Simulated scan of single mutants.
Amino acid sequence: MHRTIFTTPVINTLLRGFSLAFLKMTGWTVEGSLPPQATRSVFIAAPHTSNWDLPYTLMVAFALRLNPYWMGKQSIFKAPFGGLMRWLGGIPVNRAQSSNLVAASAQAIAGADGPLQLIVPPEGTRSKTRYWKTGFYYIAQTAQVPIVMAYMDYATKRSGLGPLFQPTGDIAADMAAIKAFYAPFKGKNAAQFEAEPIE
């Protein structure tokens, strides 16, 4: 995978210090840690209801010493910001041609020569949606890596890493269990987050 802000020496150290200070100053608590067996994994990023989710996610990632990559719609990678978005860990996604996205993402995880955590917002959009997309589930299943249930709760200013979840193949039961974990959390725009059946 391409070099990111998280793998750039010196800058990584400086931004981790800034992130820790900013989160503490603004009242956020960072919880959990990444288990050794999840250094390669798929992260659920939920709730996802605001543009503020990205900077907070990046700061939490610095605080937890993660090496995350994240998916974003192709339009935000256009000039002049495309290089910056990639350096921040972004991977452009063409939503009109996403049929091979699961295979390509799983291959990237399996072929990484070091730790790699792929962050996938299951809503697929910041707008209100009743259904979660299942790409994150199939990426983890195909790559044979665990799902890390990462969360950001604006109501209590808590963010971090919840339990690991290993897909069983029973997607209906697995999604019900995953959504039950996320049900108490509130996004910045809480009315836009619903735990409803899968899409």
Score class of each variant (00 low, 15 high):
Ala173Gln: 15
Val148Met: 12
Ala140Asn: 09
Pro184Ser: 07
Leu54His: 09
Gly32Lys: 06
Tyr138His: 15
Arg3Gly: 00
Thr129Asp: 01
Phe77Leu: 09
Pro68Cys: 02
Ala108Glu: 14
Trp28Ser: 02
Arg16Ser: 07
Glu123Asn: 04
Tyr151Thr: 03
Gly83Tyr: 02
Ile44Phe: 07
Pro36Gly: 00
Val93Arg: 05
Phe193Gln: 09
Pro80Glu: 01
Pro163Cys: 11
Trp132Gln: 05
Asn67Pro: 00
Gly111Val: 05
Val60Ala: 09
Thr29Met: 11
Ser98Glu: 13
Ala180Asn: 12
Gly187Cys: 00
Gly169Lys: 03
Ala140Tyr: 05
Ala45Ile: 12
Ala176Gln: 15
Ile44Ala: 06
Thr142Tyr: 01
Leu66Gly: 07
Thr134Tyr: 06
Ala190Cys: 10
Trp28Asp: 01
Met71Asn: 06
Trp70Tyr: 15
Pro197Glu: 06
Leu66Gln: 11
Ala177Asp: 11
Leu164Trp: 05
Thr39Arg: 14
Ala180Arg: 13
Ala150Trp: 04
Pro197Leu: 07
Arg65Ile: 02
Gly90Phe: 05
Pro121Leu: 02
Ala21Trp: 15
Val120His: 02
Ala191Gly: 15
Ala103Gln: 11
Ile178Asn: 05
Pro55Gln: 00
Tyr137Asn: 09
Pro167Cys: 02
Pro167Gly: 03
Leu20Lys: 15
Arg3Asn: 00
Thr168Arg: 03
Arg65His: 11
Ala21Gly: 14
Ser99Gly: 10
Asp153Ser: 06
Ala176Leu: 13
Thr13Met: 12
Pro92Leu: 11
Pro163Gly: 10
Val120Lys: 04
Glu196Pro: 00
Ile198Leu: 15
Lys186Phe: 01
Arg95Cys: 13
Gly169Trp: 10
Trp132Ile: 03
Tyr154Asp: 12
Ser98Trp: 05
Thr39Glu: 14
Tyr137Glu: 12
Val42Cys: 05
Ala63His: 11
Pro47His: 12
Ser19Tyr: 01
Asn12Met: 14
Gly135Phe: 02
Val42Lys: 03
Thr129Trp: 01
His2Tyr: 10
Thr156Leu: 00
Tyr151Ile: 02
Ile119Ala: 13
Leu23Gly: 13
Leu34Val: 14
Leu14Glu: 09
Met152Asn: 10
Pro36Met: 05
Asp153Glu: 08
Glu31Trp: 10
Asn67Thr: 11
Val60Glu: 05
Gly114Tyr: 04
Arg3Tyr: 00
Ser19Val: 03
Met149Ser: 06
Tyr154Gly: 06
Glu123Thr: 05
Phe77Trp: 01
Leu54Gln: 09
Phe77Arg: 07
Leu101Ala: 09
Leu54Asn: 07
Thr142Trp: 02
Pro47Asp: 10
Leu116Phe: 09
Phe181Asn: 11
Ser75Gln: 15
Glu199Leu: 11
Pro197Ile: 06
Pro197Arg: 04
Leu14Arg: 09
Leu64Ile: 02
Lys133Leu: 06
Pro197Tyr: 08
Val120Met: 07
Phe193His: 14
Leu164Gln: 04
Thr13Phe: 14
Lys73Pro: 03
Val30Glu: 04
Gln117Ser: 09
Ser99Ala: 14
